[in-house]
Amino acid sequence: MTGKDRREHIRTAMTAKVKVTHPEFGEFVFSTRDISDGGVFVVVDTEPFTPVLGDRVTVQVQGLPVPAPVLDMVVVRQTNDGYGLQFDHCDD
């Protein structure tokens, strides 16, 4: 890895609806922009979702024929249009 890009995993463009639940702010449905083995980027438009880096959230893909698993994630990056969420492997 060189320069500013410190990502360990290759990102793949993918648009899906996900429910993000924050213990303080509640539930939101966002669209994803990309996904990797390490996490997902969610696009936040005008929603009042303002976590800080390090906050833990749960994420669940929406719109599948069966309920998707609920995954624990950590907010690791913020940009002008959304947040990078990393899979939380603290139980591994």
Rank of each mutant, 00 (worst) to 15 (best):
residue 55 D to I: 00
residue 34 D to E: 06
residue 20 V to K: 05
residue 75 V to F: 03
residue 8 E to G: 03
residue 62 Q to M: 15
residue 55 D to S: 10
residue 22 H to R: 14
residue 56 R to Q: 03
residue 49 F to V: 02
residue 45 D to M: 06
residue 26 G to R: 12
residue 70 V to H: 00
residue 21 T to C: 12
residue 51 P to H: 04
residue 53 L to P: 03
residue 82 G to W: 09
residue 57 V to D: 06
residue 61 V to M: 14
residue 84 G to N: 09
residue 50 T to F: 11
residue 88 D to Y: 15
residue 43 V to E: 14
residue 86 Q to Y: 07
residue 12 T to P: 00
residue 86 Q to W: 00
residue 82 G to F: 10
residue 44 V to D: 05
residue 65 P to W: 10
residue 39 G to A: 12
residue 10 I to F: 04
residue 7 R to G: 10
residue 7 R to A: 13
residue 88 D to F: 14
residue 7 R to I: 09
residue 29 V to N: 11
residue 87 F to Q: 10
residue 76 V to S: 02
residue 56 R to N: 02
residue 41 F to Y: 14
residue 70 V to G: 01
residue 37 D to F: 08
residue 54 G to E: 03
residue 47 E to S: 07
residue 17 K to I: 05
residue 53 L to E: 13
residue 61 V to Y: 14
residue 5 D to W: 08
residue 90 C to D: 12
residue 89 H to D: 14
residue 86 Q to I: 00
residue 83 Y to R: 05
residue 49 F to A: 08
residue 44 V to N: 08
residue 82 G to L: 02
residue 74 V to Y: 06
residue 9 H to D: 07
residue 77 R to W: 13
residue 49 F to P: 01
residue 88 D to L: 12
residue 32 T to F: 05
residue 34 D to V: 01
residue 27 E to K: 09
residue 42 V to I: 15
residue 10 I to H: 06
residue 61 V to I: 15
residue 5 D to K: 11
residue 46 T to V: 09
residue 77 R to F: 03
residue 81 D to W: 04
residue 27 E to D: 15
residue 14 M to P: 01
residue 63 G to D: 09
residue 35 I to N: 02
residue 47 E to F: 10
residue 25 F to C: 03
residue 45 D to F: 00
residue 23 P to Q: 14
residue 67 P to V: 13
residue 23 P to M: 11
residue 43 V to H: 12
residue 79 T to F: 11
residue 65 P to E: 09
residue 87 F to I: 01
residue 48 P to H: 06
residue 57 V to G: 10
residue 28 F to W: 10
residue 67 P to I: 11
residue 86 Q to R: 15
residue 57 V to Q: 10
residue 84 G to Q: 09
residue 42 V to S: 09
residue 43 V to Y: 15
residue 88 D to K: 13
residue 65 P to M: 07
residue 45 D to V: 00
